[in-house]
Amino acid sequence: MNIFRLAGDMSHVFSILVLLLRLRVAKNAQGISVRTHELFLIVFLTRYLDLFTTFYSLYNSIMKILYIVSTASIIYTIKFQEPIKSTYDKSQDSFLYWQFAVAPCAVLASVTHLIGSGISGFSFIELLWTFSIYLESIAILPQLIVLQRYREVENLTGNYIFFMGAYRFLYILNWIYRANFEAHYQHHWVVYICGVLQTLLYVDFFYYYFKSKKSGGRFTLPT
């Protein structure tokens, strides 16, 4: 554990809390994509299967459970809890995530896992872990698309996405730190490429986020 990873994890937790708070305070789901959180739930459920097989640390286990429970709670709140449920506009949140996210990532993960470990080293848990790395890298896309459709970004929604992006950026610093200060460290290019791709997806958002903070005005996205 290093300061960058801890800060990243905290940023992630904070972003989830901001979103849950935002849903309860505003009592609506305008500009929020459930599909993004459904993708994250798939990511966590496929990556954290090692909860049953390996114990790393109490911190690690607690955070994994926290991510799964809080993400499920976000989905439940938007899809099933009134009055929020009736404010959720399905037609705006229409990213075809099975065709454009889950299926391609499953194919890519199968190919890279088979190339990496061969038939003899095949492991279903490893395959799902690789799949989750790919899927996480694009899981924010439905949210960014919804944001683009609404144009005007509500304050807490902007903050929630900002802390999501900050979390990914801090993870890159964490890898740089680990590569320099950890003995027996080995690079993992799939993790790096997906991590960088995921962070790049936030760059455009960051630009307008800081611009609106600086001017103190309303946060709107250009067409």
Partner: peptide, 10 residues
């Protein structure tokens, strides 16, 4: 072995 390293991350 290589993968183990990244499994302690979230």
């Amino acid at each position: 072995k290589e993968k183990e390293l990244f499994k302690d991350e979230l």
